[in-house]
Design a protein around this nucleic acid. Structure first.
Length: 550
RNA sequence: GGGUCCGUAGCUCAGCAAGGUUAGAGCGGUGGCCUCUUAAGCCAUUGGCCGAGGGUUCGAAUCCCUCCGGACCCGCCA
């Protein structure tokens, strides 16, 4: 290739690279596409709304927050493009209870089938209902994350009649709707049943009624409370036959059609959704377009969080990995990072993710503040952009102190009781880590101490002692019994090693292996003083015992 | 039956949206750095036909198609 051609090519290369959209993240790209789409549709660009549905029938897990935050991120991206936007946080609190969440008393089964907003709060009088309590947990997490949102309660929306126009249109077109559902997902149910759940006036449940006829003039539906299969069990109906005004908020649309009504009534332009509801979204898109004559919002489908099982995660909330659990060990921004860093791919939601994400956030912060250079301009933009999204576009003005999470945990592990914070601070000072200030250190100490409190017991591999080693350990125990200050403790290891003709290093490795499950550890003398001579001796003797049995 | 995601170093993964030098990180392995451990550290080194095959392109880990392997979702309800 000639020189001219080559330089032309590098020009192409350069110009395509310089075109960074917004802050360079996925969300900016999506926002730009969204705005372009809306412009193309000729709709108003005054306020571009995104939506997230908040489940209210169980403890909100990391994925629930993820849904809301992804949709919020696109709203932020829209703002970067210079347009006004907001996230609608829509609580599905008119839904019925289908299953008693893990961690709650089985007596709650009597509430199965009731709208969650009409079930008393099982945690006491703190909220109006079960649904309100669950919703509040998610809203709390949203507040901590730094997201802003416009909250809507499903039961209120129905009561206020916000969806009434859409409900009427749908009730007048139930035949078409039934056909669309059948076409899209092969479900024939709605060719006979109307896509509206009435709350039974006799027993107050919502999932036991079958709505079979619509009377247009009075906009009423006829229903019979005959029962329904929910999560593999039969909820028996009370047999009541009645009729209900669909505009009076005494029931709700089926999910197969409700999204469409919400989208149009609330003017939603974007909604990302998890793949579990992909079918519902596809149906709703068609209904929105064909029945309600409203172009449905732009969508992006994402993967669900995977629960990496094995570890008992939380004592209070069943076994659900909630945002609140994350916040106990990790900063809000680190959770935002977990959620934001990939849009579509599967993410694992578990406590093991917390330390690496805390460290990764520090790395992003270094890049943001220019302490670390990234060669590629696009890469640089992406990473600083990601950092800004983690801070919801309100990044701090100065960098915080950076300490690897594992180091914090290690220090927290050996910190003497009741003066943990001082001990950790002192150590970090001598390490020279606090030279540039200590912003955020208090938080890090708290998080690390929480971690150690809950997961402090590291799994120790069984230590196999050779004959020589066993002798050395034995001698060490004797020496420790006679020693009574840090220097003596320290010296006893070396003395024991020499006496048995071993290298001190090898003995140290074994000793740390026994005590903390790692090859290396804190300076031995002070460590023994910190956790108590007798405890150390006990541990060593225990290992000696078990290895003698072999 | 319908759909999605993943497959990159021994392990865990990043990079893939908007293709562009020699594909990165952490952990691990190996070697070195203290004759009393701030070594909880540092230095060096080891490592990859980017699952396979085709296509598009000047150029593919990245885009498209097919296949193989793994995981998941939907097919009640929400």
């Amino acid at each position: 290739m000639g020189e001219a051609e080559e330089s032309e090519m590098s020009n192409i290369r350069r110009s395509s690279k310089l075109k960074i959209i917004g802050r360079g993240t996925w969300y900016d790209k999506a926002a730009a596409e969204l705005i372009e789409r809306e412009r193309h549709l000729g709709r108003s660009l005054d306020l571009i709304r995104t939506e997230s549905g908040l489940g209210a029938s169980g403890f909100p897990h990391i994925g629930s927050l993820g849904d809301a935050l992804r949709n919020y991120a696109v709203a932020m991206g829209v703002k970067v493009q210079g347009y006004n936007s907001e996230l609608i946080a829509f609580s599905d609190d008119k839904d019925g209870l289908r299953k008693v969440p893990a961690g709650l008393p089985p007596e709650m089964e009597k509430w199965l089938g009731y709208p969650v907003s009409s079930i008393p709060d099982p945690f006491g009088d703190c909220h109006d209902s079960f649904g309100a309590h669950m919703t509040s947990l998610l809203l709390e997490a949203l507040d901590i994350s730094g997201a802003e949102y416009n909250f809507k309660s499903g039961s209120k929306i129905y009561k206020e009649g916000i969806l009434n126009d859409e409900i009427v249109t749908m009730m007048e077109n139930t035949d078409k709707i039934g056909e669309i559902i059948k076409e899209e997902i092969g479900q024939e149910k709605y060719t006979e049943t109307l896509p509206y759940f009435a709350v039974c006036e006799n027993c107050d449940r919502i999932y036991t009624t079958n709505t079979y006829r619509y009377i247009p003039d009075e906009h009423r539906v006829l229903y019979k409370c005959e029962g329904m299969e929910v999560k593999g069990r039969w909820l028996k109906g009370c047999g009541h036959k009645g009729e209900v005004d669909v505009l009076a908020g005494k029931g709700k649309l089926s999910w197969k059609v409700e999204f469409a009504a919400r989208w149009k009534a609330l003017d939603i332009r974007f909604e990302a959704y998890g793949k579990d509801i992909a079918d519902s979204v596809r149906v709703n898109d068609r209904i929105c377009r064909e029945i309600l004559d409203f172009e449905p919002p732009m969508h992006v489908q994402y993967e669900m969080f995977l629960d990496r099982g094995g570890r008992k995660i939380s004592k209070s909330a069943g076994n659900v990995f909630t945002p609140q659990v994350w916040y106990r060990y990790g900063s809000p921004q680190s959770l935002n990072l977990l959620i934001f860093k990939r849009f579509v791919g599967t993410k694992s939601g578990s406590v093991e993710e917390i330390p690496p994400h805390m460290d990764e956030l520090d790395l992003l912060e270094d890049i943001f503040f220019g302490k670390r250079k990234v060669a590629d301009e696009m890469e640089q933009a992406k990473l600083t952009g990601l950092y800004e999204y983690c801070w919801m576009h309100k990044p701090p003005e100065t960098s915080s102190v950076h300490v690897p999470y594992n180091l914090m945990v290690n220090l927290a592990k050996v910190a003497p009781e009741r003066s943990e914070a001082d001990f950790i601070r002192e150590k970090l000072e001598t390490y020279g880590i606090l030279r540039d200030g200590d912003q955020g250190l208090e938080q890090r100490i708290t998080l690390a101490l929480n971690w150690v409190e809950d997961y402090g017991e590291v799994e120790k591999r069984k230590v196999e002692l050779t004959q020589d080693m066993a002798k050395a350990v034995n001698r060490l125990i004797k020496l420790l019994k006679e020693a009574d200050d840090e220097d003596d403790y320290q010296g006893s290891v070396f003395e024991a090693a020499r006496a048995e003709g071993l290298s001190p290093r090898a003995l140290f490795h074994i000793v740390y292996q026994i005590l903390i499950g790692q090859k290396q550890g804190p300076r031995f003398g002070p460590y023994v003083a910190a956790i108590g001579k007798n405890n150390v001796i006990k541990e060593l003797e225990k290992t000696l015992e078990t290895s003698k049995l072999k």
